[in-house]
Computed example of a mutant assay.
Amino acid sequence: MPLDPSFVADPYPTFAAMRNEREVLWHEELGLPVAVSHAACSAILRNRSLGRLWKDKEPVPEFAAFNMLHRNSLLENEPPTHTRLRRLISAAFGRGHTERLRPMVERLASSMVASMVARIEAEGSADLLEHLAEPLPVEVIGELLGVPPEDRGLLRPWSNAIVKMYEYGLSPAQAAAAEQASSEFSQYLRALATRPGDNLISDLVAVRDGSDRLTDDELVATGVLLLMAGHEATVNVIGNGVLALLLNRDQWDLLVATPSLLPSAVEELLRYDAPLQLFERTATAPVSIAGWELEPGAKIAALLGAAARDPEVFAEPDRFDITRSPNPHLSFGAGIHYCVGAPLARVEIAAALQALVQLPTLHLATEPARRPEFVIRGLRTLPVAV
Rank of each mutant, 00 (worst) to 15 (best):
D212H: 07
L219R: 04
T215F: 06
L243C: 09
T234I: 10
H231D: 13
N236K: 12
L219V: 05
T258D: 14
V256H: 06
N240K: 09
T234A: 09
M228D: 15
G223R: 07
L225N: 09
L247D: 12
V220T: 11
V256S: 07
L247I: 01
G230K: 01
L247Q: 15
T258Q: 14
V237D: 05
L254R: 15
L247K: 15
Q251R: 13
V235L: 06
L219Y: 00
T222C: 14
A244S: 15
G241M: 11
D212S: 13
M228W: 00
D250C: 09
T234S: 14
D250R: 15
H231K: 08
L254P: 05
A229I: 02
W252Y: 11
N248K: 01
L254H: 12
S211P: 00
D217I: 03
L255E: 06
A233R: 02
D250V: 08
L255R: 03
D250E: 15
H231G: 03
V242S: 04
V235F: 11
N240P: 07
S211H: 12
N236S: 14
H231W: 10
P259Q: 12
R249E: 12
H231T: 02
L255K: 04
A233Q: 07
L225H: 03
H231P: 00
A229S: 14
L243R: 12
E218Y: 02
A221Y: 00
W252P: 09
L246K: 12
D253M: 11
L247T: 15
V235W: 05
P259C: 10
P259G: 12
G223E: 04
L227T: 04
V242L: 12
L246F: 12
R249K: 10
D217F: 03
L254G: 02
V256M: 09
T215M: 06
D212L: 08
Q251P: 09
D212E: 15
M228R: 12
P259L: 08
T215I: 01
R213M: 05
L214Y: 02
G230V: 04
A229V: 13
V256F: 04
R249A: 11
I238H: 09
R213W: 01
L226A: 05
V256G: 10
R213S: 13
D217N: 14
V256Q: 07
V224P: 06
P259S: 11
V224H: 06
N248R: 12
N248H: 15
L227Y: 04
V235C: 08
E218A: 02
A244G: 10
G230P: 05
L214K: 00
D217M: 10
V220E: 00
H231A: 01
N240E: 13
G241R: 05
D217Q: 11
E232D: 15
R213Q: 12
T222H: 00
A233N: 14
H231I: 13
L219S: 04
D216I: 03
L255F: 11
P259H: 09
L227R: 01
E218K: 01
A221E: 01
V224Y: 02
G223W: 03
G241Y: 05
D216K: 02
V237N: 04
A221D: 00
I238N: 06
D216Q: 07
D253N: 14
G239N: 11
A233W: 06
G223Q: 08
S211C: 02
W252K: 10
R213Y: 05
T222K: 01
T258I: 00
S211G: 06
N236H: 14
V235G: 07
L254D: 13
